[in-house]
Design a protein around this nucleic acid. Structure first.
Length: 511
RNA sequence: GCUACAUUCGUCUAGAGGUCUAGGACAUCAGAUUCUCAUUCUGAAGAUCGCGGGUUCGAAUCCCGCAUGUAGUACCA
């Protein structure tokens, strides 16, 4: 088998959709598994839809995700090859001309308005073998007339000439054999004089051929036009080196049906783009996985399993493992609904593998934003204590704010249920006992507290929870003496005194 | 409308004629642990395999029909 060469070929019309990320990922896995090459090609043949910054966004996204390319717009090469279709403009014209010369394509002068009129006139109108005879093209117009229009610089398009009644079969690595009759295909525009650029269909075939692409791995929305592409390969005489196709199932919206769109993300509150993106035209900003605190490894793992499965019960895969085990025959054929909950779970798993220090450095940034200046060592101890309960670094604040800011309110429900008479005195007595532990030791403090509770026949749950309430403000958090340990005795004492005063004397003056 | 593709727990999926009283994961619920919350662990619930016909001794698995869904049907990719 010849060298595996695959490409990911996005259009720079905006941010990179998560479905596109998955397509790129599968391309990447397949290429790496086979020791092949993966190419990043920018399909900007529609000049009117170009969006500034989109290309760089795509490059940045893959860099963040750890998907690397061997060739592409962002990788310099010595051959002078451009991977941007707008810069390959001169290449395509000759193939369009060649097709016209061979009678496999023709020139059409119909304006968009004229075609629109036809569409209204005839239901199910399509520009094909049946209708092209009544249109303005080089098949119906006298040669001299065609030449006259060309000489007059009239705008035209080149349309492929589809011969009806032929079954075209495509052998898809995922969908199997799909047969379609050429009669249902229309004479697609493959080149347009208005900007001198080909349409996607021609550009993609020419580039894939020139770049020696061995496998075309793309979304299922392309399956219906695959027969046209097969025909183009044949017309151009490249049928024997035509790449293999693999059409990936769509990623569907979590609720209802249909393709996952940016709107769904906004509506349901999750990102659809890898990185935050601000549309230069509207100024509208969309959230990104990176900014929401997702780890690239988690996104990769999550996406890999959305539409593909290993056939084993393994769920967690590193990129290396994915490269080893990925295969097209384990890609499912039906669309997969997007489930953000699963993504969160993956993130939780991957976050647990991060060191306390790594997480702390990030968390410290959040603390600084909140105006809290504290040592990394202190933060690390807190992270060590709390990281297993979080899915995102940002969750840490909700879990740990009381380590930085003393409570300003006490959960009323806990007071009502557990703060019985004499609780204040008991807590102050316990504090006195703990004070005798010099230097402070959490185990000793714990034992002394337990002894006190037992000797005075106090209710363990009530007492401990009220102690906790004084330090945290609520009935939550890790082991109480771990909190005392981190807070330090002085701070603990102050908080207990304040809580007792506040709750029993209804004195909130020090809060 | 036309064409193609798809259809197994709420979701992602395993399943390649008997091993399926259909397995796993997320989510849900319960129990255990704990002063609390969370984590973790254990367990439970959850799918008449879209429907109807065949083929076969036997079908989630093969065939046909229907239904539903999705995609495409642009001088967009």
């Amino acid at each position: 088998m010849s060298e595996v060469r695959v490409r990911f070929a996005p259009s720079p019309t905006g941010a990179l959709h998560i479905g596109g990320v998955r397509t790129a990922l599968y391309n990447y896995l397949f290429a790496r598994q086979n020791g092949g090459k993966i190419i990043l090609r920018i399909e900007d043949t529609d000049s009117s839809r170009f969006v500034a910054g989109a290309e760089q966004y795509i490059i940045d996204s893959f860099q963040w995700l750890g998907i690397t390319f061997d060739e592409g717009v962002h990788i310099p090469n010595n051959e002078g090859i451009s991977y941007r279709q707008s810069e390959r403009k001169p290449i395509y014209k000759q193939y369009a001309d060649e097709l016209v010369k061979k009678g496999l394509a023709y020139i059409a002068f119909d304006t968009p308005e004229e075609i629109e009129t036809k569409r209204k006139e005839f239901s199910n109108f399509q520009y094909d073998a049946q209708t092209r005879t009544m249109m303005k093209n080089s098949l119906t117009l006298p040669a001299a007339e065609v030449q006259r229009r060309l000489d007059n610089q009239e705008q035209y398009v080149v349309r492929i000439k589809i011969e009806p009644g032929e079954d075209i079969e495509i052998n898809d690595l995922i969908c199997g054999n799909v047969r379609i009759n050429s009669s249902v295909l229309d004479d697609k525009v493959i080149w347009k004089s208005s900007d001198g650029l080909p349409t996607y269909h021609l550009a993609n075939i020419v580039d894939d051929h020139l770049m020696k692409i061995s496998h075309v791995i793309r979304g299922a929305e392309w399956l219906p036009s695959a027969p046209l592409h097969v025909l183009l390969y044949r017309y151009l005489g490249w049928a024997d080196t035509m790449p293999q196709f693999a059409h990936l199932p769509l990623i569907l919206k979590p609720d209802g049906n249909g393709k996952l769109s940016k709107r769904d993300g906004d509506r349901l509150g999750f990102p659809v783009f890898p990185l935050q993106w601000t549309d230069p035209k509207t100024g509208e900003t969309s959230m990104g996985y990176r900014e929401q605190g997702y780890l690239p490894e988690a996104i990769i793992n999550f996406l890999a399993l959305l539409g593909w499965n290993p056939g084993t019960e393994q769920e967690i895969f590193s990129m290396e493992e994915l490269i080893q085990v990925f295969s097209f025959n384990r890609v499912s054929k039906s669309g997969a609904k997007f489930d953000i909950e699963k993504a969160k779970w993956f993130n939780h798993k991957y976050l647990q593998n991060k060191s306390d220090q790594e997480i702390s450095v990030e968390f410290q940034q959040i603390l600084i934003q909140k105006g809290i200046d504290t040592s990394l060592i202190y933060v690390e101890q807190i992270v060590a204590l709390l990281k297993e309960r979080i899915s995102f670094v940002a969750d840490l604040w909700e879990q740990s704010h009381y380590f930085f800011i003393a409570p300003t309110a006490y959960d009323e429900q806990v007071i009502r249920k557990r703060w019985k008479e004499n609780m204040g005195n008991n807590l102050l007595e316990i504090i006195k006992l703990i004070e005798t532990v010099q230097p402070f030791d959490k185990t000793k403090a714990h034992d002394l507290t337990m002894d006190y509770i037992q000797q005075n026949e106090l209710h363990l749950g009530h007492t401990m929870n009220c102690f906790r309430l004084a330090l945290v403000g609520a009935a939550k958090g890790p082991d109480l003496f771990e909190i005392v340990n981190l807070l330090g005795f002085e701070e603990t004492k102050q908080r207990v005194v304040r809580a007792v005063d506040c709750i029993e004397n209804k004195n909130s003056s020090h809060l």
